[in-house]
Amino acid sequence: MKHVFRLKVGPVAFRIGSDWEAPLAQLRRLYAGYPTPEGICDFTVRVEADKPWRRRLRPSVAIRGDYVLPDAAPLPLAQGLLAAEMGMNLQMALGQRRYLLLHAGAVERDGQALLLTGESGAGKSTLSALLGERGWRFLGDEFALLGLGDGELRPFPRAVSLKNAAADLFADLPEERFGPVLSGTPKGTIRHLRPNDAAIAGMHDRVPPALILFPRFGPERPAAVRPVGAAELFMRLTQASTNYVALARTGFDALTRLCRSVPAAAIDYGSTEEALALVDRLWAAR
């Protein structure tokens, strides 16, 4: 394709091609400091004109690549950065076969990892990004990659996608870590945030998981903690994984091992500060 950007995030290398330079220029700026893959790329993403005549006329961006969803709706060119990000997510969700992929945020402290998972909108992405700015090392806000043989997490510190008011929580960070404001997207206003230098520098270290939390946000909800047993954890994590079934026996072995060895709890919180306090308490007691 006319314009190309190669990017390595943790163990995964992407090749992103585009009909236009603009989305790739935004990607390059957002991922400044990330390594460039030297050999083969695991996945190819194409940010291309939806139809050939849509290259110039009301440019409309289709999200395509090695793995595609037939009904993925095109986006306006102004949201080309989002299209590239969604394209990378799609490749991981549909094509990743080396690690058990859990839809979860992850952070590290004391050489061990905390996983935050649960339904979208529960706050796992925002919480993991916040923890990453407050003494924890950020490993990822969207996908946690669990090694099939060793049960250890591989960091996957992609840019954080901050939706609507969530960006306000990071207002004190330097402007150069943020991507452009993308308004009117299918998910509202989005701003991407580059993880900090520690997260990027440590993206190749493996981390054993030590605690799994299922946060749930509700303004009127009293803070609460409920332990999650191994069987329930197993059931919830199969639902949080996009490739559990595809990995067959290896996925089963990795997941049963995780569920038997790592404690888990569901936490309800009414404010961000409440959630951070709960995390600290549970981490100390793990």
């Binding site: 047993g229 069987a231 049963t256």
Partner: peptide, 9 residues
Amino acid sequence: EMEGLTIVF
């Protein structure tokens, strides 16, 4: 076996 349930692959 987990908590009285049997998870079968």
